[in-house]
């Protein structure tokens, strides 16, 4: 019986390793993976922060991210951007992109804020068990998704090309575009800024205090609700930054359901790097992006991207259950 079921799978050469292709495309796969991984990292930050403070997996964070993407698309398309590369002057392009970035940060932050106020705070007031939060998060995710569906319809938004990319460097025979550099550098800067904010600022200290021991923190005069709201908002702002670069990289990827898969992967990135750990989010994102790309090229089929990425995730967690850098938002290293 088992043999009968397996036979079709065995007859097709369902798995084959294309090593020459991986060697040939190694560097381009690496750079593309880093670029996409940087975006995973930015989204992963929102999961990590909220988890660190509340021990809550905020499944609706993918919708915080996708609403930011919608903000980018709506702002840019109203400014005359479309699927074709814009013809306006460089200064105007930069100005438009900043405007879109700010809009995305604001919109994502507002959605994250509302999510906290409407979905989670009432539950916290009633001391609801953790499972209820999880279900609420999934419900909130669907609610936001289908609200977007009702407003914007099922079709993806038309592509927004922000600028025509062009190669800048030639590394090991692989062209690196200005877009890739921009995304990775901007993502790393955003992560460093967030990391510094949490490590050094007064509010950051509050966030770490609540993550470490909410009750003691409250006794010490930390306003817990305020800290939680700020945590959500910071996650939202960073997701907004991720939204701009996601639209830059995948111009037609904005669809009501478009955040879900990316959200799952960003969450996986957070777990891989060590959930609750800000630096781990970036590391996990970059790793996940690169590994997925290697897997896809090695196995010659996009269906393998996620399989490979998640197998690696499982393997890492088997060896180090807290993720690569460990869960340390509340610890002194942070």
């Amino acid at each position: 019986m088992l043999e009968l079921l397996l036979r079709p799978a065995m007859e097709n050469d369902w798995i084959s390793f294309d090593v020459p292709s991986l060697i040939q495309n190694f560097w381009s796969a690496t750079f593309d993976g880093l670029t996409f991984g940087a975006i995973y990292g930015l989204v992963a930050l929102g999961y990590t922060l909220v988890y660190g403070v509340l021990n809550l997996i905020n499944f609706a964070h993918s919708e915080v991210f996708i609403t930011g993407c919608y903000a980018v698309v709506l702002v840019l398309s109203s400014l005359g951007f479309g699927p074709s590369a814009p013809t306006m002057s460089v200064g105007l392009i930069i100005l438009s992109l900043i405007l879109a970035l700010v809009a995305a940060m604001i919109v994502s932050a507002i959605v994250a804020y509302l999510l906290e106020r409407v979905a989670y705070r009432p539950l916290r007031r009633r001391n609801a068990p953790r499972l209820v939060f999880l279900i609420t998060a999934i419900g909130a995710s669907f609610t936001i998704q289908y609200t977007i569906y009702l407003v914007r319809g099922a079709n993806p938004e038309p592509a927004i090309t922000m600028f025509r990319t062009s190669p800048i460097f030639d590394v090991f025979g692989t062209l690196i575009t200005d877009q890739q550099i921009l995304i990775v550098v901007a993502a790393v800067i955003t992560m460093i800024a967030t990391d510094q904010f949490i490590r050094r600022s007064r509010t950051g200290r509050g966030i770490r205090a609540v993550a470490q021991d909410p009750d003691t923190a409250t006794l010490m005069g930390v306003n817990r609700d305020r800290i939680i709201v700020i945590t959500f908002v910071v996650g939202g702002i960073v997701a907004g930054v991720g939204a701009l670069f996601y639209v830059m990289l995948v111009p037609s990827g904005v669809q009501y359901s478009g955040g879900f898969v990316l959200g799952v992967k960003a969450f996986a990135a957070a777990v891989l790097g060590g959930i609750g750990n800000v630096r781990g989010a970036l590391l996990g994102g970059l790793l996940l992006g690169v590994i997925g790309n290697y897997g896809q090229i090695l196995l010659g089929n996009s269906q393998w991207t996620d399989v490979v990425a998640f197998v690696i995730l499982v393997l890492v967690l088997l060896v180090k259950p807290t993720g690569i850098l460990g869960t340390s938002l509340g610890r002194s290293k942070a």
Binding site: V90, I93, I94, L97, R164, S166, D178, Q179, I181, L182
Partner: peptide, 8 residues
């Protein structure tokens, strides 16, 4: 961005 847009 400036570099990017310019070379674009």
């Amino acid at each position: 961005t400036a570099c990017a847009a310019q070379s674009g």
